[in-house]
Structures are given as structure tokens and as C-alpha cells.
Nucleic acid binder design. Structure first.
Lengths: 358, 358
DNA sequence: GAAATCTCTGCAATCGATTGCATGAGTTTC
DNA sequence: GAAACTCATGCAATCGATTGCAGAGATTTC
């Protein structure tokens, strides 16, 4: 009665088309190698039986999974999820599946990666998390079993991997210069998480811009932070305790900028009337918070698309994986309402008056 | 020189431990079936060779992929990405990988799903998108090859699938009642996208609450929308054109609520002084926008965890998949600053004065 | 002490697709 | 008209792990 029909295999197709399985296989993967007549019979047979190649069998034989692994520090973070969107599209367009591994860094990250590769589940890795164990990673990409890997948005210093990222240092410089051009002289920075490469890059960009303008950087104006709203709120609390406060803040990312603004407001300070704030990333919500956030836009969709494309190129051998390549995409300054001239400077500046945003 | 060592197979382990591959396989999957002595020898051999079972081979033989497919309408949306986070953790904890398929609905969605299943890449599906082609879905879950499927957050009417979701209708009622309790009598609604089940459920919850309180619902106060910020901005434009405006709005989700507030502000109206707004979802940013958003919190992490757990139960046969089961999680009202008493009612109400939020 | 039972292990088939090699028919070349 | 070549196809090995069946030896039962 309830006899479950099995899913059709290549055998069924072969039987139906009265050819061997070899011919069916060839008809599907390199059609020019079979005659038109049999090709037609096979197409018909595929249609009738509803055949779909078994990916496990194919993987086993060809040692290829047609799947990439995306290792993220936090999928819940909209910064990553938009990139993941682009990655997924690019991969799907090229016939690859996308496996996600979240909260990747930490104790067993190297082991988990090793397992994914050695168990033949994935052909390549997009690594969005620079805090992964470098030694374990090298062991993996190194001689015994080299595998395709691209580091995205982050960078692992002195490691010979392809990378795709944005010009963090330059963008941070640009953001800081924007504040300086508005007339700010007393500028602080809400840092990213400690030990993160991006934190360092953005901080040094900030410092370079300050130095270039001949401005002092007070150590107490470098506020500890992280890439989260809550960290911005806490930074605002530190900020409020300062006897002498800056008139502008460059925050290491949008979330901490928004948290900072929100925290400041709880203490009665307004943005941008009291303090101007610049963020980094241009998340979707940056345009919709109040005040709309001035920020450096990272081309996130492009990052995802290019990274996925490059990884698949490496997997398919179309790109040399021995010579590490660094792709740097440029960020764009988006001026919105969270930055204005400093409160003291309602009168025109000595220089020609800067453009007042908003 | 550069001889690439192959990745170790079960054969290598067997040779090293001087047993058959069968014994190695058993030692790893059901250790109680081998003697302690050989078990130790095999563990040692596994350690030395660095063996990891080849997942393709295992899948082929066992017809199981230890992978679930998560089909989402939009990963970039933080609502989904937080759920995905929970799904990924639960799946990882139970030894499953997570494949994501984004922008799932539309033309070939049924075909793509069919391929994922028939090609043996995945064992089950978490479907977050109700707008998928029902007929194709039924064909798939139906007799020829039934497969494990759970619909999350959405619902496909009259379809015999397990579902995990929140109590949308009741939550919408609760949100609306909150506005009524604050003293609002003229209340509008920013709808979700047309044709969406959630849109209908939340709208009817809204209508029930209004009816229960004996309040009129004017058709022109039911503003067209979608689950996006931009749609909220547009709804605000419609709102501004009304000759006679409500004093409060229940928006179908947080994003449209935030967009609405932002759009209203561009026209000089303030929230909550002029108009109170309630959202739905409690996204991370709801607490950090200005004003902080009053909203119905959906237990997103729980949704993801429970859905993934239930799906794996079905896959592993620990849960009957023939009797569809509906799990409904309850939402929680989070009162923040975006709701207050209506502008006309600065004087006490006839009823005992309602709690003024903020 | 023979029979029954239990424990541990190995043999070999199996999952489904791919692919190197062989074959036979047809075509071209000199 | 024989040799050389091309083309379409089939045979059978292969990828690596799992598992039904069977056998050897140890242990228990009566």
C-alpha cells in the first residue's frame, strides 16, 4: 500500500533511456560528448523520472562539495547579515551552497574548521573573524591540506591569505577630517573592541588626521568601546564624567555611535547641538535614527559579492591561491544630521565657513 | 618533493590499529560494541592519523546529510538574522550544519527546494517565508518523498505543516489596548505588506481591540505599509496628508514604526508629544532610537532555538511528523518612550489616570 | 560435556555518480 | 584497401564509510 517510491537515481534514468549510466553522466556534464539523439532520449528520461543528481555521491567521487563555509563572529549583527546576503546571492548564482558558522572564534574554532574541511563538507572558507587561532589556521592552509580561504573585512597580520576589505585607515582619517573642517578642535574617539585589527586601523586613521591638523589628542578622550550599542552607551557615561569634554566624537562604528548618542541624551546632552558624532559602516538604520547619522559607508554588498566570487575562483582554480592578493574597496562619506559646527562657533570661523550639514 | 599527503581515511586508521574498517566505524559510532583494548588502539590511531570521517561518504551510505536548510525572505533584515543566530547555535549543538537560502520565494523557489532535498544535501527545512509556492511544497512533502519541514514565524493556511510562531493576533490586540489605556481614542494602523499572513493577523488583532473598546476605525487611518523603514516613511507622508489625524499609531513592525517616526519628524511632528507609536518585534535598535520604541517583543532567540530543535527531532524520528503541531510563543509588551497620553488629554481622564510612560 | 548464548571482529556488499580505458562502427588519408 | 583516426558508448573500478551476515572464541546453562 504505502510503498514509498525511492528517489530516482542515475540508474533509473539510464534504464529508461536504454543507455549506460556513464552516458547519462556525460550527457549531463558535457553534452557535446554524446550524440544528439541519445541526448534527447536522456533529457526526456530525466524529465519523466524527475531525476536530480545525488550531491553526496558526486562529492564523494569528485572530492568537491560545491559549498562554501562562511564564518562570522555574529550573524545577528546587521553589518554582517547584509554582507551574508550578497555572499549568498553570488554563491547561488555560481551554483554553490552557503553553510554558516556563527560565533566562530574562540576555543575550538580551529578544530571546527578543520572538521568542516576534512569531512569534505565545504570547498572554501570566507573568514569574517580575524580573532581566529592563527596557528591552527596555518596548519590547515599549510602543506598537508591547503584549502581556499579569503579573509573578509578583517586582516590577520603577517598571514599569507587573500583579503577583501575596505580602506579603514583612510576612511577614519576622512571622517575625522570632516569634523575638523566643521571647525571642531577638541575631538574624541570611541574605540572598537580591544585586540581587533579594525580598532587599530580606525584609531590610527583618527590619530593621523588629528596630527595632520596639528590638534592635540588627550588620552582621556580616547574612550574604550566595542562594536555594539551598549558599548556606546557606556562610553557616553565615561564621557559625561569628563571635566573637560570634546565637542565631537568619531565612533569606531555606527552601533557605538548610536549608543553613544542615546547615552548622551539620557544625560541631557544633544547631538549635534552639544556634540557632533560620526559613525562608521552606514547601517540601514543610520539614516533613520535621530539625528540621522553622519558616517563612512562601507560597500557591504560589494564586499560580499567580490569576496564570494574570488573564493569560488580560487576553488575552481581560476585564481592562483599561492600569491596572496589584497583587494581594498573604498568607503564613502555620508553627511547627515549628527554632525554640525561646534557650539562655541556660531560666529563665522577664521577660515572660510565650513558647510553646515543638516 | 611537494608530495601532497592525502587526507586520512578510515582505511588508514584501520591499518594503523590493525583492525578492519568495520571495527573502526563501530568504535566511532557505537563504542560499546568493541572491546576496550581495540577501542583504545583505535582512538590512538585516530589521534595519530588525524582522521575525520568523510561526510560525503557517510551521507551517501546513510542517506542523511546532517544539514538543515533555512529559507529566508531576507537575511539582511535583523529580525531574521537574530533568529538565524539561534538556529545556528542549536543546530551546531546537535551536530548539524546550516545552509542558508535567501530571497527564497518567487519563481523557482519550489524547484530549488526540491533540488536541495533530492540531491541529498539537506535533511530538513526551516521555512521562514509563507509566500512560497504551496502546490510545489505539497508535492514535495507529499507521498513520493515526504520530508521534514517546519514553518517558522509564518503560516501557510490549510497546509499540514508543523509551525512555530508568536501569538501575533493577541500581541497586536495587547499593543492596541496599551494605546487605548493611555487615553487614545483616535488610533491608526500602519499595515504590513499585502498578502502576508502576519499582516492579516496583526491587523485583525488591532481591529478586535478597537472594537472591544467601542472605538471607530476609519478606513483612511489604515495606512498601507511593509515591513521596512522606507515603507514607514511613506506611510508618514500619507499620514501628513490626512485632514483629520489619529493621535496614535500601531505599526505592524518596528522598522515601519521607526520609519514612520522619522518621516513624521521631517514634517515637524514629534513622537510622542504629537503622535504615539507602538511597534512590533523589539529589534535591538528599538531601545536605542529616539524616542525609544514601545513595542511587542517577539522571543526571537527562543523561536529559532525551538524551531531548529523541533526540526531535528522530526529528522531523527523522535517526533511524529504526520500530525502537524503548532507551537505558539507569547510576546511581551515593552513600554518605552514612544507612547504617551494623547495631546488633548493633559488634564486627568474620567477613568483613573493611566500610567504615563517615559 | 554438549548445547546454547554472548561478545568481538572481519568479509564483502552497498550507497550513486564519475571516469580511464576499451571497443566497435564509421570516416578519412595516402 | 589498409592504416589511422574520430566518435559515441559501455564496462567496471573508484571515492570512503556503513552494516547485514557469519564465524571464532569465550562463557553460561542444564
Amino acid at each position: 500500500m504505502n510503498l514509498v517510491k525511492k528517489t530516482p537515481t542515475i540508474q533509473d534514468v539510464a534504464r529508461f533511456a536504454r543507455v549506460s549510466t556513464a552516458t547519462v553522466s556525460r550527457a549531463l556534464s558535457s553534452p557535446e560528448r554524446v550524440s544528439e539523439a541519445t541526448r534527447d532520449r536522456i533529457s526526456e528520461a530525466v524529465r519523466v523520472t524527475g531525476y536530480t543528481p545525488n550531491q553526496s555521491a558526486r562529492s564523494l567521487r569528485q572530492k568537491t562539495a560545491r559549498t562554501i563555509l562562511v564564518a562570522l563572529p555574529d550573524i545577528g549583527n546587521p553589518f554582517f547579515s547584509v554582507i551574508l546576503d550578497a555572499v549568498e546571492r553570488e554563491a547561488a548564482a555560481r551554483g554553490y551552497g552557503v553553510l554558516v558558522a556563527n560565533r566562530f572564534a574562540g576555543g575550538d574554532s580551529g578544530v571546527r574548521m578543520r572538521d568542516y574541511f576534512m569531512s569534505n563538507r565545504v570547498d572554501g572558507l570566507l573568514l569574517f573573524d580575524g580573532s581566529v587561532d592563527l596557528e591552527q589556521l596555518m596548519m590547515l592552509t599549510g602543506e598537508p591540506t591547503p584549502f581556499p580561504l579569503i579573509v573578509v573585512c578583517e586582516e590577520i597580520p603577517n598571514a599569507p591569505f587573500h583579503t577583501v576589505k575596505t580602506d579603514n585607515g583612510y576612511a577614519a582619517e576622512r571622517a575625522t577630517r570632516h569634523l575638523i573642517e566643521l571647525g571642531h578642535r577638541r575631538i574624541g574617539h570611541v574605540r572598537g573592541p580591544q585586540g581587533n585589527v579594525l580598532t587599530v586601523e580606525r584609531e590610527s586613521g583618527f590619530l593621523r588626521a588629528m596630527q595632520a591638523a596639528g590638534l592635540d589628542v588627550r588620552p582621556e578622550w580616547m574612550l574604550p568601546g566595542a562594536f555594539e550599542m551598549e558599548a556606546g552607551v557606556i562610553a557616553a557615561q565615561h564621557f559625561m564624567r569628563l571635566a573637560d569634554r570634546p565637542t565631537a566624537i568619531f565612533a569606531a562604528n555606527d552601533e557605538s555611535a548610536i549608543g553613544f548618542i542615546s547615552g548622551m541624551r539620557q544625560h541631557g546632552l544633544d547631538c549635534p547641538d552639544d556634540v557632533s558624532v560620526v559613525g562608521f559602516d552606514d547601517l540601514a538604520l543610520a539614516a533613520h535614527v535621530w539625528p540621522p547619522l553622519t558616517t563612512m559607508r562601507q560597500p557591504r554588498a560589494a564586499l560580499g559579492r567580490i569576496a564570494a566570487g574570488a573564493l569560488i575562483d580560487v576553488i575552481e582554480g581560476e585564481r592562483n591561491s599561492r600569491v596572496p592578493m589584497h583587494m581594498v574597496l573604498s568607503s564613502e562619506m555620508i553627511v547627515r544630521g549628527s554632525t554640525a559646527r561646534p557650539p562655541a562657533l556660531t560666529a563665522p570661523l577664521a577660515e572660510p565657513p565650513a558647510l553646515v550639514a543638516r
